[in-house]
Write a protein that binds this DNA or RNA. Structure first.
Lengths: 161, 161
DNA sequence: GGTAAATAGATATGACGCATAACAATAATT
DNA sequence: AATTATTGTTATGCGTCATATCTATTTACC
């Protein structure tokens, strides 16, 4: 989890390394900004004993009852083996269940439990507050522009081979 | 390193999980877009035997001769113990040296070697091409808006305690 | 001047996110 | 019927991140 240093010294006392070269790159700025988002998101989800990946998995399962693990892995853009331990954890906490699929004995249909849906509601509400705090300094036009930019970056490489 | 699946099937064959709830969050979009950037950056740096963190460290050292390890850790926003192995690796490859500081026998002044500066030039050029490819779909006004948004997100939490 | 506190760098360790290889069971294709 | 592909799993390793603890040295304080 990216560090967010707690000790805040006056900026005048810190001898800064010049990072102008790195700041020329949007990717670098994205990294630094996302570190801030991720650190705050981690803090936000901790009371629910969720992490970014388990939260994402839970949301996708609640919103898509019957989802297959392979579909969930695709949606999350992670490798299937890495999903197994995430699903194991959500199942162990009784937030979801793996239902057998009569027509395909290889597959499971994932389904959220009542506890899972209730945790979903709380966690999504908390993440909404986290997001509002993170974006407090951004007027709506800047948010809209940013979303459009992020869409284009993500989309531009979906067809890459 | 975030997955970028190589197998590209027609989108019409994929049964998508609806991720509308997650897409409501800018943080989620940032994560997904940054995954794309990071995957491509990893590929870009691989021929130089660099990773994102060793590349960043090298750039900051080349641009700031005499930098202390604690300053570099601050600039990179990572914990000092985690910097040690990065500096070890750059030193082993003879890209940088740890100079003793006569006035402070605890500290080292980091300095890039000729090989380090040469690798810097090549890597920065490659990262520039990677960045141009990533941002090809973004008109300048969108880039400018995005940079401003990222600045505000990063800055808004610098003073947080 | 002596002592306590702070700093710089280091070692060790663990959690988590990511990748790949290989496997078994099952379904789909030829 | 045989072959290929798919689904989920186990195992493993690498890299990024955090924290605890340590030694050597410098700075602050009395």
């Amino acid at each position: 989890m990216p560090n967010q240093k707690h000790k805040q010294m006056p900026q005048s006392d810190v001898i800064h390394a010049g990072d102008a070269t790195l700041r020329n790159f949007v990717g670098y700025r994205m990294k630094r900004a996302f570190n801030v988002v991720q650190a705050d998101l981690t803090k936000t989800l901790k009371p629910f004993d969720l992490r970014m990946l388990t939260y994402t998995a839970l949301v996708l399962i609640v919103d898509n009852p019957g989802l297959r693990q392979s579909q969930l892995a695709d949606a999350m853009d992670i490798e299937r083996p890495n999903l197994v331990v995430l699903i194991d954890e959500l199942e162990r906490r009784e937030l979801i269940v793996r239902d057998r699929v009569p027509t395909d004995r290889r597959a499971y249909a994932l389904r959220a439990t009542l506890a899972g849906r209730q945790l979903y509601e709380k966690a999504v509400a908390a993440v909404t507050l986290h997001e509002n705090a993170i974006l407090a300094d951004l007027p709506q036009d800047l948010r809209t522009a940013m979303i459009e930019a992020l869409k284009r970056i993500e989309k531009a490489h979906r067809g890459r081979s």
